[in-house]
Design a protein around this nucleic acid. Structure first.
Length: 271
DNA sequence: AGGTTGACCTGTCAGC
DNA sequence: TGCTGACAGGTCAACC
């Protein structure tokens, strides 16, 4: 579930409360996607200075080192200022601090908690090194977006998901942004006209910022670090709506597979 | 180098 | 009710 807006909503929900907290311990459950990289007790005594984000990674900047956290497909974080319940079968990490316990709940275990000495250290570079620009930041602008796409011969949807041009756009928002821009998901990225790239750029910005404003989409089990869930359901125009009428033209939304992922689109509104 | 595919893991749901 | 298969928000290593 977590695409960029959900990760950012999560970050905002606990960043201030954990700032200044001293780490007492890190308890790890079943293996996640990647190992932590150091013995867990290495973190004890470190102090959380800030919580940042790069793409879908949360970055806990400590007084020494950085903890990278990823929510994978099914992860969510909870911040418990009072002692949390006994960990359930899918609670795979507890970062116990002087301010509360940051708990990772992740049934599929595609998520990760990784230690790096700094953002320049190997583990961080490996994970963050080839990420594209932040879509809500100042570096995401149409000219550069156009240049990056001009070298890509694969379908625009695949390029968006790959994350090396622009980060944070997952399957839902890729479908929604392409719908807003009126672009067929199978269109070859390099073949898009300047005008269409501009429309796509604007669509990505608007879809992500609207989702962020509304607290992320809440398909299934997304919740922020306060456990708040489902207070908003992103009004998906196409995602998950195969066979239902297009919100714009009333013709049925279509479903296809691209790189083993579902793509929803309107064949009339998207060319 | 860019493009494509399979793999990771578990829960849920549709269909028989 | 129980089984099986398909599918789910992500990403990387390994192939052509």
């Amino acid at each position: 579930m977590p695409e960029l807006p959900e990760v950012e909503v999560t970050r905002r929900s606990f960043a201030e409360r954990i700032r200044g907290a001293r780490i007492e311990s890190l308890r790890l459950g079943k293996p996640l996607r990647w190992p932590l990289g150091v013995p867990a007790h290495t973190l004890s005594g470190r102090v959380v200075q800030s919580v940042g984000r790069r793409g879908k990674y949360l970055l806990l900047h400590l007084d020494q080192g950085v903890l990278l956290m990823h929510l994978g497909m099914s992860g969510s974080l909870g911040f418990h200022e009072t002692p949390p319940p006994v960990p359930g079968p899918h609670d795979h990490a507890d970062l116990v601090t002087s301010r509360g316990v940051l708990r990772l709940h992740d049934p599929r275990r595609f998520g990760a908690v990784v230690w790096a000495d700094s953002l320049d250290a190997a583990p961080a570079r490996k994970l963050l090194g080839r990420l594209g620009v932040e879509p809500l930041g100042p570096d995401f602008e149409p000219e550069r977006f156009q240049t990056a796409l001009s070298g890509r011969q694969s379908a625009i949807k695949q390029v968006l998901l790959a994350g090396d041009v622009v980060v944070g756009v997952g399957n839902i928002y890729a479908c929604e942004a392409l719908f807003r821009a009126g672009i067929r998901p199978t269109a070859v990225a390099a073949s898009l006209s300047r005008q269409r790239v501009q429309r796509l750029h604007a669509a990505i910005c608007s879809v992500l910022s609207e989702a962020l404003e509304r607290g992320g989409s809440s398909l299934r089990d997304f919740s922020d670090a306060d456990g708040r869930t489902g207070y908003f359901q992103l009004d998906a125009a196409v995602y998950g709506r195969a066979g239902q009428p297009c919100v714009r033209c009333d013709r049925p939304v279509r479903l296809l597979r691209q790189g083993q992922r579902s793509t929803y689109y309107c064949a009339t509104c998207q060319r």
